[in-house]
């Protein structure tokens, strides 16, 4: 197999510029996903049955359709309704919606992990509603949620190459460009794969640190 290190080095700066776009899109998409997730979680808890039921199906829909198709819909179909978005905007909105359902699932699991007895203890101490939420419920729910968010971020990072198909100029897009211009695919795709591997491994280390910071004093791992 022909793999030229010289060529790989030559295209590395271009690919890294693409990687910056990858990270930007992931970050903005991640923040959107958390907003969407928080919204969905709020709509599912303590709302009339109709609202929570509809929300459940919306989540199910967001979860069971491919990111690629969502991106197509936002980028190609919405202009028919007069809403034209730049690739970056369509891409991050698709990411945010797609992963918002997962974010909501993570948050719900976190909230459910706080036992009912904690609520009872807060009532017995006559804590105001706000203090119960900010001092007892959320700090405890955050423990499983934050590492979950870390994993979500990593999987979003790995989903961004899909957005090359709506011509977002991230890493994959750059690699394709290099490939089709120079008729050399090997180096570009392998370097992209390696960059992703590095990102994922760094991310995994980050999540592990987060998990360690989040364990309760005195609990055994």
């Amino acid at each position: 197999m022909e793999f030229s290190f010289a060529f790989a080095l030559e295209i590395l700066p271009k690919l890294l510029r693409g990687a910056v776009v990858t990270i930007e899109a992931t970050l903005v998409g991640f923040l959107l996903a958390i907003l969407v997730g928080a919204g969905l979680t709020a709509l599912r808890r303590g709302t009339p049955r109709l609202v929570s039921g509809v929300t459940r199906w919306v989540m199910e829909f967001l979860r069971s359709t491919p990111l690629l198709v969502k991106a197509y819909f936002l980028y190609f179909a919405l202009p028919d309704f007069g809403l034209t978005m730049a690739p970056f905007v369509a891409g991050v909105v698709a990411l945010g919606l797609h992963h918002g359902a997962f974010a909501s699932e993570i948050m719900r699991a976190g909230l459910d992990s706080v036992p009912r007895s904690q609520r009872e203890a807060a009532i017995a101490l006559n804590l105001p509603e706000g203090a119960w939420r900010t001092r007892i419920l959320i700090p405890q729910a955050a423990r499983p949620v934050l590492p979950g968010f870390g994993n979500l971020f990593i999987s979003m990072l790995k989903d961004t190459p899909v957005l090359y198909s709506i011509s977002l100029a991230e890493m994959m897009f750059v690699a394709n460009e290099i490939g089709s211009l120079q008729f050399r695919y090997n180096e570009a795709y392998i370097v992209v794969a390696l960059i992703y591997l590095v990102f994922s491994l760094l991310g995994a280390v980050g999540v592990r640190l987060l998990e360690r910071r989040m364990t309760l004093p005195g609990s055994r791992p």
Partner: peptide, 24 residues
Amino acid sequence: VEVFRGTSALVQLFVLFFVLPGMG
């Protein structure tokens, strides 16, 4: 496991589709 979870599914498909033919 780490390599295939760590790289994106699309990147893996592209490597199989575009890079492997170069290796015969």
